[in-house]
Protein backbone atom coordinates (compact mmCIF):
# COMPACT_ATOMS: atom_id res chain seq x y z
CA UNK A 1 0.00 0.00 0.00
CA UNK A 2 1.09 3.59 -0.32
CA UNK A 3 2.71 4.50 2.96
CA UNK A 4 4.13 7.73 4.33
CA UNK A 5 7.92 7.49 4.33
CA UNK A 6 8.73 4.89 1.75
CA UNK A 7 11.50 3.95 -0.58
CA UNK A 8 10.14 6.65 -2.87
CA UNK A 9 11.60 9.34 -0.65
CA UNK A 10 14.92 7.57 -0.41
CA UNK A 11 15.34 7.39 -4.17
CA UNK A 12 16.26 11.04 -4.23
CA UNK A 13 19.12 12.80 -2.62
CA UNK A 14 18.75 16.25 -1.24
CA UNK A 15 18.65 18.26 -4.46
CA UNK A 16 21.41 20.65 -5.43
CA UNK A 17 20.61 24.01 -7.04
CA UNK A 18 20.59 22.60 -10.58
CA UNK A 19 18.21 19.78 -9.62
CA UNK A 20 15.95 22.23 -7.81
CA UNK A 21 15.75 24.45 -10.88
CA UNK A 22 15.01 21.46 -13.08
CA UNK A 23 12.27 20.18 -10.78
CA UNK A 24 10.74 23.66 -10.62
CA UNK A 25 10.74 23.86 -14.42
CA UNK A 26 9.15 20.43 -14.75
CA UNK A 27 6.56 21.39 -12.15
CA UNK A 28 5.52 24.39 -14.23
CA UNK A 29 5.40 22.30 -17.41
CA UNK A 30 3.39 19.59 -15.64
CA UNK A 31 0.92 22.11 -14.25
CA UNK A 32 0.44 23.61 -17.71
CA UNK A 33 0.05 20.13 -19.21
CA UNK A 34 -2.50 19.05 -16.61
CA UNK A 35 -4.30 22.39 -17.05
CA UNK A 36 -4.53 21.80 -20.81
CA UNK A 37 -5.82 18.26 -20.20
CA UNK A 38 -8.55 19.51 -17.87
CA UNK A 39 -9.39 22.30 -20.29
CA UNK A 40 -9.74 19.83 -23.19
CA UNK A 41 -12.04 17.59 -21.15
CA UNK A 42 -14.21 20.49 -20.03
CA UNK A 43 -14.31 21.84 -23.59
CA UNK A 44 -15.40 18.46 -24.90
CA UNK A 45 -18.22 18.45 -22.35
CA UNK A 46 -19.19 22.01 -23.23
CA UNK A 47 -19.12 21.48 -26.99
CA UNK A 48 -21.35 18.45 -26.70
CA UNK A 49 -23.75 20.41 -24.53
CA UNK A 50 -23.10 18.22 -21.50
CA UNK A 51 -22.52 21.20 -19.24
CA UNK A 52 -26.04 22.57 -19.79
CA UNK A 53 -27.81 23.38 -16.55
CA UNK A 54 -30.63 20.90 -17.16
CA UNK A 55 -28.18 18.02 -16.98
CA UNK A 56 -26.90 19.02 -13.58
CA UNK A 57 -29.48 21.12 -11.71
CA UNK A 58 -31.48 18.16 -10.39
CA UNK A 59 -28.47 17.18 -8.30
CA UNK A 60 -29.28 20.28 -6.24
CA UNK A 61 -32.59 18.74 -5.26
CA UNK A 62 -32.85 16.63 -2.13
CA UNK A 63 -35.34 14.30 -3.82
CA UNK A 64 -32.68 13.23 -6.31
CA UNK A 65 -30.27 12.33 -3.57
CA UNK A 66 -32.98 10.60 -1.52
CA UNK A 67 -33.76 8.50 -4.55
CA UNK A 68 -30.10 7.60 -5.10
CA UNK A 69 -29.70 6.95 -1.39
CA UNK A 70 -32.39 4.25 -1.42
CA UNK A 71 -30.42 2.59 -4.21
CA UNK A 72 -27.20 2.98 -2.27
CA UNK A 73 -28.82 1.37 0.78
CA UNK A 74 -29.89 -1.60 -1.36
CA UNK A 75 -26.36 -1.84 -2.69
CA UNK A 76 -24.88 -1.76 0.81
CA UNK A 77 -27.43 -4.28 2.06
CA UNK A 78 -26.50 -6.69 -0.72
CA UNK A 79 -22.77 -6.07 -0.28
CA UNK A 80 -22.83 -6.56 3.49
CA UNK A 81 -24.97 -9.68 3.27
CA UNK A 82 -22.66 -11.08 0.60
CA UNK A 83 -19.63 -10.21 2.73
CA UNK A 84 -21.02 -12.00 5.78
CA UNK A 85 -21.80 -15.11 3.73
CA UNK A 86 -18.40 -14.92 2.05
CA UNK A 87 -16.65 -14.74 5.42
CA UNK A 88 -18.59 -17.78 6.66
CA UNK A 89 -17.79 -19.73 3.48
CA UNK A 90 -14.19 -18.55 3.55
CA UNK A 91 -13.83 -19.69 7.13
CA UNK A 92 -15.13 -23.15 6.32
CA UNK A 93 -12.81 -23.43 3.29
CA UNK A 94 -9.84 -22.35 5.39
CA UNK A 95 -10.65 -24.95 8.05
CA UNK A 96 -10.92 -27.53 5.29
CA UNK A 97 -7.62 -26.58 3.73
CA UNK A 98 -5.83 -26.84 7.08
CA UNK A 99 -7.15 -30.35 7.79
CA UNK A 100 -4.78 -33.26 7.89
CA UNK A 101 -7.41 -35.53 6.32
CA UNK A 102 -6.91 -35.27 2.52
CA UNK A 103 -10.62 -35.52 1.62
CA UNK A 104 -11.81 -32.26 3.20
CA UNK A 105 -8.50 -30.69 2.28
CA UNK A 106 -8.86 -31.44 -1.42
CA UNK A 107 -12.51 -30.39 -1.44
CA UNK A 108 -11.50 -27.08 0.13
CA UNK A 109 -8.60 -26.60 -2.31
CA UNK A 110 -10.90 -27.30 -5.26
CA UNK A 111 -13.52 -24.89 -3.92
CA UNK A 112 -10.95 -22.16 -3.38
CA UNK A 113 -9.43 -22.56 -6.85
CA UNK A 114 -12.90 -22.63 -8.38
CA UNK A 115 -14.09 -19.43 -6.70
CA UNK A 116 -10.87 -17.65 -7.45
CA UNK A 117 -10.74 -18.67 -11.09
CA UNK A 118 -14.32 -18.00 -12.18
CA UNK A 119 -15.62 -14.49 -12.90
CA UNK A 120 -18.48 -13.21 -10.75
CA UNK A 121 -20.51 -12.58 -13.88
CA UNK A 122 -20.43 -16.26 -14.79
CA UNK A 123 -21.71 -17.14 -11.31
CA UNK A 124 -24.42 -14.52 -11.65
CA UNK A 125 -25.50 -16.12 -14.93
CA UNK A 126 -25.59 -19.44 -13.19
CA UNK A 127 -27.94 -18.12 -10.53
CA UNK A 128 -29.94 -16.13 -13.06
CA UNK A 129 -30.19 -18.52 -16.00
CA UNK A 130 -29.50 -22.01 -14.75
CA UNK A 131 -31.00 -22.26 -11.27
CA UNK A 132 -34.53 -21.19 -12.27
CA UNK A 133 -34.57 -23.87 -14.96
CA UNK A 134 -33.66 -26.38 -12.30
CA UNK A 135 -36.71 -25.24 -10.37
CA UNK A 136 -34.83 -23.26 -7.78
CA UNK A 137 -36.46 -19.86 -7.46
CA UNK A 138 -34.86 -17.29 -5.27
CA UNK A 139 -35.46 -13.56 -5.34
CA UNK A 140 -33.34 -10.95 -7.11
CA UNK A 141 -31.62 -10.07 -3.83
CA UNK A 142 -30.18 -13.56 -3.43
CA UNK A 143 -29.43 -13.88 -7.12
CA UNK A 144 -26.91 -11.06 -6.80
CA UNK A 145 -25.84 -11.67 -3.20
CA UNK A 146 -24.98 -15.36 -3.43
CA UNK A 147 -22.72 -15.20 -6.52
CA UNK A 148 -20.89 -12.18 -5.08
CA UNK A 149 -20.42 -14.09 -1.82
CA UNK A 150 -19.17 -17.25 -3.50
CA UNK A 151 -16.84 -15.22 -5.69
CA UNK A 152 -15.21 -13.54 -2.70
CA UNK A 153 -15.11 -16.60 -0.43
CA UNK A 154 -11.96 -18.19 -1.90
CA UNK A 155 -9.89 -15.05 -1.47
CA UNK A 156 -11.18 -14.67 2.07
CA UNK A 157 -10.24 -18.29 2.81
CA UNK A 158 -6.69 -17.54 1.68
CA UNK A 159 -6.63 -14.37 3.78
CA UNK A 160 -7.74 -16.38 6.83
CA UNK A 161 -5.08 -18.96 6.14
CA UNK A 162 -2.38 -16.29 5.87
CA UNK A 163 -3.59 -14.89 9.19
CA UNK A 164 -3.48 -18.30 10.87
CA UNK A 165 0.00 -18.91 9.48
CA UNK A 166 1.12 -15.53 10.84
CA UNK A 167 0.40 -16.67 14.40
CA UNK A 168 3.69 -17.97 15.82
CA UNK A 169 3.94 -21.77 16.08
CA UNK A 170 4.93 -21.44 19.72
CA UNK A 171 1.38 -20.36 20.56
CA UNK A 172 -0.04 -23.67 19.36
CA UNK A 173 2.73 -25.63 21.04
CA UNK A 174 2.17 -23.81 24.30
CA UNK A 175 -1.59 -24.45 24.22
CA UNK A 176 -1.18 -28.11 23.32
CA UNK A 177 1.40 -28.58 26.04
CA UNK A 178 -1.15 -27.22 28.51
CA UNK A 179 -3.36 -30.15 27.54
CA UNK A 180 -5.79 -28.20 25.35
CA UNK A 181 -7.32 -30.16 22.49
CA UNK A 182 -6.34 -29.16 18.93
CA UNK A 183 -9.85 -27.82 18.33
CA UNK A 184 -9.83 -25.77 21.52
CA UNK A 185 -6.33 -24.56 20.71
CA UNK A 186 -7.48 -23.34 17.32
CA UNK A 187 -10.62 -21.55 18.51
CA UNK A 188 -9.30 -20.10 21.76
CA UNK A 189 -5.66 -19.39 20.99
CA UNK A 190 -4.79 -19.33 17.29
CA UNK A 191 -7.88 -17.89 15.61
CA UNK A 192 -8.44 -14.95 17.99
CA UNK A 193 -4.87 -13.86 17.19
CA UNK A 194 -5.21 -14.56 13.47
CA UNK A 195 -8.35 -12.47 13.16
CA UNK A 196 -6.34 -9.37 14.00
CA UNK A 197 -4.12 -9.90 10.98
CA UNK A 198 -7.11 -10.62 8.79
CA UNK A 199 -9.41 -7.68 9.56
CA UNK A 200 -7.69 -5.28 7.10
CA UNK A 201 -8.00 -7.76 4.23
CA UNK A 202 -11.64 -8.41 5.14
CA UNK A 203 -12.38 -4.71 4.84
CA UNK A 204 -10.52 -4.58 1.52
CA UNK A 205 -12.58 -7.59 0.45
CA UNK A 206 -15.75 -5.62 1.09
CA UNK A 207 -14.62 -3.30 -1.71
CA UNK A 208 -14.47 -6.21 -4.14
CA UNK A 209 -17.92 -7.40 -3.10
CA UNK A 210 -19.32 -3.89 -3.37
CA UNK A 211 -17.93 -3.57 -6.88
CA UNK A 212 -19.37 -6.93 -7.87
CA UNK A 213 -22.87 -5.91 -6.75
CA UNK A 214 -22.93 -3.38 -9.60
CA UNK A 215 -23.83 -6.34 -11.82
CA UNK A 216 -27.18 -6.34 -10.00
CA UNK A 217 -28.82 -5.00 -13.15
CA UNK A 218 -28.36 -8.44 -14.71
CA UNK A 219 -30.83 -9.89 -12.20
CA UNK A 220 -32.91 -6.67 -11.96
CA UNK A 221 -32.12 -5.94 -8.34
CA UNK A 222 -32.76 -2.26 -7.60
CA UNK A 223 -29.30 -1.18 -6.52
CA UNK A 224 -27.62 2.18 -6.98
CA UNK A 225 -26.90 1.51 -10.66
CA UNK A 226 -30.54 0.65 -11.33
CA UNK A 227 -31.71 3.82 -9.60
CA UNK A 228 -29.25 5.72 -11.75
CA UNK A 229 -30.89 4.25 -14.85
CA UNK A 230 -34.30 5.45 -13.68
CA UNK A 231 -32.86 8.89 -13.03
CA UNK A 232 -31.37 8.91 -16.51
CA UNK A 233 -34.70 8.22 -18.19
CA UNK A 234 -36.59 10.74 -16.13
CA UNK A 235 -34.06 13.54 -16.66
CA UNK A 236 -32.68 12.45 -20.03
CA UNK A 237 -29.19 13.04 -18.69
CA UNK A 238 -27.01 10.00 -19.05
CA UNK A 239 -23.50 11.44 -18.80
CA UNK A 240 -23.97 13.47 -15.63
CA UNK A 241 -25.82 10.72 -13.75
CA UNK A 242 -23.34 7.96 -14.58
CA UNK A 243 -20.42 10.21 -13.67
CA UNK A 244 -21.96 11.14 -10.33
CA UNK A 245 -22.77 7.51 -9.55
CA UNK A 246 -19.24 6.43 -10.49
CA UNK A 247 -17.87 9.10 -8.16
CA UNK A 248 -20.11 7.81 -5.34
CA UNK A 249 -18.74 4.30 -5.79
CA UNK A 250 -15.17 5.55 -5.99
CA UNK A 251 -15.52 7.60 -2.80
CA UNK A 252 -17.07 4.76 -0.81
CA UNK A 253 -14.43 2.27 -1.94
CA UNK A 254 -11.69 4.82 -1.35
CA UNK A 255 -12.90 5.32 2.21
CA UNK A 256 -13.03 1.56 2.80
CA UNK A 257 -9.51 1.10 1.45
CA UNK A 258 -8.22 3.92 3.63
CA UNK A 259 -9.88 2.31 6.64
CA UNK A 260 -8.27 -1.01 5.76
CA UNK A 261 -4.84 0.63 5.40
CA UNK A 262 -5.22 2.36 8.72
CA UNK A 263 -6.27 -0.85 10.46
CA UNK A 264 -3.33 -2.66 8.90
CA UNK A 265 -0.94 -0.02 10.15
CA UNK A 266 -2.45 -0.15 13.63
CA UNK A 267 -2.23 -3.95 13.66
CA UNK A 268 1.39 -3.73 12.65
CA UNK A 269 2.11 -1.36 15.48
CA UNK A 270 0.40 -3.41 18.15
CA UNK A 271 1.40 -6.79 16.81
CA UNK A 272 4.95 -6.19 15.67
CA UNK A 273 6.69 -6.15 19.07
CA UNK A 274 5.17 -9.52 19.94
CA UNK A 275 6.19 -11.05 16.63
CA UNK A 276 8.79 -13.72 17.18
CA UNK A 277 10.85 -14.81 14.22
Amino acid sequence: MSGGTSIRDRLYEQPGPRTRRRVAAFTVVALIGLGILIYLIVRQFAEQGQLEVRYWDFFLKWSTWRFLLTGLLSTLRAALTAAVIAIALGFVMMRGKLQRNPVPRWIAVAAIEFTRGVPTLLLIYFFFLVLPRMGVNIGAFWRITLPCAISASGIIAEAFRAGVNAVPKGQTEAALSLGMSPLLTFYRVVFPQAIRFVIPSLIAELVIVLKDTTFAYVVSYADLMQKAKVLITSHDSLVSVYLVVAVIYILINYALNKLSDRMARRMNRTVAPAKVL
Binding site: S2, V23, F26, A30, T214, L243, Y249, I252, N257
Partner: peptide, 30 residues
Protein backbone atom coordinates in the same frame (compact mmCIF):
# COMPACT_ATOMS: atom_id res chain seq x y z
CA UNK B 1 3.98 8.40 -8.53
CA UNK B 2 7.65 8.33 -7.58
CA UNK B 3 8.88 11.24 -9.68
CA UNK B 4 9.96 14.38 -7.84
CA UNK B 5 7.49 16.63 -9.70
CA UNK B 6 4.58 17.16 -7.29
CA UNK B 7 1.73 17.69 -9.80
CA UNK B 8 2.67 14.50 -11.65
CA UNK B 9 2.79 12.58 -8.36
CA UNK B 10 -0.65 13.90 -7.51
CA UNK B 11 -1.93 12.89 -10.93
CA UNK B 12 -0.50 9.38 -10.51
CA UNK B 13 -2.16 8.98 -7.11
CA UNK B 14 -5.45 10.31 -8.48
CA UNK B 15 -5.32 7.89 -11.41
CA UNK B 16 -4.72 4.91 -9.16
CA UNK B 17 -7.47 5.82 -6.71
CA UNK B 18 -10.02 6.33 -9.49
CA UNK B 19 -9.38 3.10 -11.37
CA UNK B 20 -8.72 1.02 -8.30
CA UNK B 21 -12.07 1.94 -6.83
CA UNK B 22 -14.43 2.18 -9.80
CA UNK B 23 -16.60 -0.91 -10.30
CA UNK B 24 -16.06 -2.68 -13.61
CA UNK B 25 -19.71 -2.35 -14.56
CA UNK B 26 -19.71 1.40 -13.95
CA UNK B 27 -16.52 1.76 -15.97
CA UNK B 28 -17.95 -0.22 -18.87
CA UNK B 29 -21.24 1.67 -18.86
CA UNK B 30 -19.43 4.99 -18.99
Amino acid sequence: RVCPVKPLRAFGVFYVQVFRNIPGAAMLII
